[in-house]
């Protein structure tokens, strides 16, 4: 439905005419100007999800690691369930 790609905010400018927030976003080495008006609290260094030139959400770093903690839990559970064959 909608391709949204995570990129890192490298710089932020505010356009005088309409007061719109623009940011330079880095996607693994290439840079594109993106509108940051929908993520007013985003700062330089944050990662944002970008779709058709607009940042729509700030990547939650803590949550980003949650799935890997869950994966480690599977291993622990498995060791408990089959102690012998661990």
């Amino acid at each position: 439905m909608c391709l949204a790609v995570p990129g890192k905010i490298v710089s932020i400018q505010v356009e005088e005419y309409l007061g719109l927030r623009r940011g330079q976003i880095d996607f693994g080495g290439i840079r594109k100007e993106v509108c940051l008006d929908y993520t007013p609290e985003a700062l330089v260094g944050d990662f944002v999800m970008v779709h058709v030139g607009f940042a729509l959400s700030i990547v939650n770093e803590v949550e980003a690691h949650r799935v890997f903690a869950a994966l480690r839990e599977f291993d622990l559970l498995e060791d408990l369930e089959t102690p012998g064959a661990g």
Partner: peptide, 10 residues
Amino acid sequence: SAVVRGACEL
């Protein structure tokens, strides 16, 4: 390369 991957993802 990372640059080409970045552009292709975008």
